[in-house]
């Protein structure tokens, strides 16, 4: 196990890590707002919308992410009639799967944040003459996001690790290159290197969220 060898395998693995990071960014940037919309839908007084959102969350949280990814990549194209139009680029399909799945989790996290807000906050807003929009945007949502922050951080770390599922739909990413090197060179080193790269990514992410939490401590 020479340093030269590590540098040699590091290059493709870092390229794979780019895929991981790209998927992570796309998934988080889209699924957080989408999850928030889902929360609003669940809270909606329009019952059909609320039920639909609840059913969606139930299905997304109640089935494996791997199954959902396989379903989108390989299942959709098999649907008679429209299947041929549903053949997506693997990476695009994977992004879609992650977004749809993580939005459901974020929706539940935000709902928990909403439930944690004291009803006195609504009452104070009302007697001070705030309308519903003002109350929501200026009083409720800032508190909801603050309460949800630690859970969002936790879920984001999980997302980094879940990107390894790209392996199953044959999108070359970090784990894929590690596995290739392991098989080719009959060495355990690439697995260790991959693990270290994941650790570095989750460490950076954890530090980022710690910084955000400090920034919004309101003390």
């Amino acid at each position: 196990m020479s340093l030269e060898y590590i540098i040699q395998i590091l290059k493709p693995m870092l390229q794979g890590a780019q895929m991981t990071v790209l998927l992570f960014i796309i998934a988080i940037v889209v699924s957080i707002p989408l999850g928030f919309l889902l929360t609003l839908a669940v809270q909606s007084r329009f019952k059909p919308l609320s039920l639909l959102a609840q059913a969606y969350i139930y299905v997304m949280r109640g089935t494996p992410l791997l199954l959902q990814l396989l379903f989108i990549c390989f299942g959709l194209p098999m649907i008679p009639g429209i299947g041929e139009y549903l053949v997506l680029d693997r990476f695009v399909a994977a992004c879609l799967g992650f977004i749809l799945n993580y939005a459901a989790y974020f929706a539940e996290i935000f709902r928990g944040g909403l439930l944690a807000i004291d009803k006195g906050q609504y009452e104070a807003s009302q007697v001070l003459g705030l309308n519903k929009w003002q109350m929501t945007t200026r009083v409720i949502l800032p508190q909801m996001f603050r309460i949800a922050l630690p859970a969002v951080a936790n879920e984001s770390v999980t997302l980094v690790k879940d990107t390894a599922l790209l392996y199953a739909v044959a999108v070359p990413e970090l784990l894929h290159y590690a596995e290739t090197a392991v098989n080719r060179d009959f060495s355990i080193v690439p697995f260790v290197v991959a693990g270290i790269i994941y650790l570095i990514m989750t460490l950076l992410l954890t530090l980022l969220f710690k910084w955000i939490e400090r920034r919004f401590r309101f003390e």
Partner: peptide, 23 residues
């Protein structure tokens, strides 16, 4: 009418001054 609650119901994410000036 102004209302004062038993549990204050201040907005925790705003400073004292911002609590007064928000509405």
């Amino acid at each position: 009418m102004g209302m004062v609650f038993q549990h204050f119901n201040l907005f925790p994410h705003l400073t004292v001054k911002e609590n007064l000036e928000l509405a």
